[in-house]
Write a protein that binds this DNA or RNA. Structure first.
Lengths: 112, 112
DNA sequence: GACTGGTATGACGATAAACGCATAAAGGGT
DNA sequence: ACCCTTTATGCGTTTATCGTCATACCAGTC
């Protein structure tokens, strides 16, 4: 299953890439990480990130369309949350890779 | 470790996003999947994907800078390969998520 | 119902990335 | 030495995305 063995269909490749594109923006990753600490409203996210209100709202909208965040209204405020483990898992895999690369470069320098 | 628990540094978020950006293009994903089947030269990749020669060469260059592909010269040809399990693992995680989403949507339709 | 505070969205300029064309570089064969 | 093949790269055009300003929207308050 997955990518191994046979070539994924163009449609699937397109969906993969669209998903990864969501994570290709530091702002969205930062919002996801903030929400990982617990549900917050937009004002708190603005405070935490320093982004403009419209920017925060837009990025949340994009993440919502992929079900990476949810929202519920509390009166006039909108409380956003992100409970999926997926982004954590993906980032951990990438982090392991980044560390391996640096270690390899380090060894290459030491052996030279 | 990873993203869980504490907020990653801006630098780390930047590196994560740069990595995911590499996977955010169907063309690059397709090249990676092709190379998963085994080493190939550029001409074979052009044949397999239908992309232009310069396009293939450029995308391979980007993937190489992240060590997602390697190359060795065989005379005038350049043989590219990609042996990392990372992209497979990432895609499998995303695929699982996409399937869960569709199943949830399906159930919502059935219960309506 | 007008007003206020909080959030989403249309319009738009700036910036970045894709993609192709033409060309250069690099390595054989005659 | 010349030419041919294969791949890499400078350049220009097009397209897409970001980020902001202004404005519309929505829910509660007086």
């Amino acid at each position: 299953m997955g990518v191994a063995g046979s070539m994924p269909s163009p449609q699937l490749l397109e969906e993969y890439s669209q998903f990864f594109r969501l994570l290709s923006e530091p702002a969205r990753l930062q919002l996801l990480c903030q929400l990982k600490a617990g549900p917050m409203d937009v004002a708190a996210l603005i405070e935490a990130t320093g982004f403009s209100q419209s920017h925060v709202s837009r990025q949340l909208g994009q993440l919502q369309r992929a079900d990476l965040v949810r929202c519920e209204r509390d009166g006039v405020r909108t409380i956003w949350s992100a409970d999926s483990e997926l982004v954590d898992d993906l980032c951990n895999l990438v982090q392991t890779r980044l560390r391996q690369r640096l270690e390899a470069q380090l060894q290459q320098l030491q052996s030279a």
